[in-house]
Amino acid sequence: MRHNYRLFILLSPVILWLLCFFFVPLISALIYSFVERGTYGGVVWNFTLENYQRVFDGLYLRILWRSISTALVCTAICLLVGYPFAYYLAYYRPKLRNVLLLLVVVPFWINFLIRTYAWILILRTEGLLNSFLSILIPGFQPLEILNTPFAVQIGLVYGYLPFMILPLYAALEQMDFSLVDAAKDLGASPRHAFWHVTLPLSIPGILAGSMLVFIPTVGAFLTPDILGGGKVIFIGNVIERQFKSARDYPFGSALSFMLMVIVLAGTVLYFRALQDSESAET
């Protein structure tokens, strides 16, 4: 009985907080997504499915697809760049390993807004990249990169690369590399050993990293807003407009729930794949 009492005291603040300011707000947004918008920004308490019908309108489906496909490309680039990085740290165990890892984490602590803004200085037409290239190449025509999907893609990779590297490193660091040596001793080529030993063993890290990159990028609002300059619209930007300028809370809520469904579907797929990889190992 005393135990129950202590457990209650310790745990109830968190539970209450999340209940009141996390679950109830989510339900409140869900309710909003099923009512009509008022003429002057408020809501009219009539049940409707119209908000969801609008979500499946061609325009918004295209934007949704753009968010998903960009997030997938971003995840793939982070994986291609991050894997060799994590592999090097785990396999060669360089002396400066901890320092290198710390240097990967540092950007995570730095304001995301500032890190994104920094790319404006580099990518604008009068920016550093163009000045640099025009010194190298005489008669160089400045590239228009800022406010294009390419700029947004760079910003997203930049923002989330550390989220890929860390779980990959955690998975590879635990790996027993003598298995790779054994495969090589038994006649496997280095490439064969990589595809059949190293890669399968690092799948949990790949999955975790992909999740950590995909989820925030699919819901990204700030990066397309700043580096896309209003020309590259993601689902996050459409949601923002419903709440900040269009004052259409019901439609914004419906879009948010679509986004949440995508993210939760991703999470479910992740756990499925993780289970598959674990059962394949045993």
Binding site: P25, L26, A29, I239, S256
Partner: peptide, 12 residues
């Protein structure tokens, strides 16, 4: 996604 948490709190 943080934008979902943000708008949920706003409607709440």
């Amino acid at each position: 996604p943080d934008i979902v948490l943000a708008i949920a709190l706003l409607t709440f």
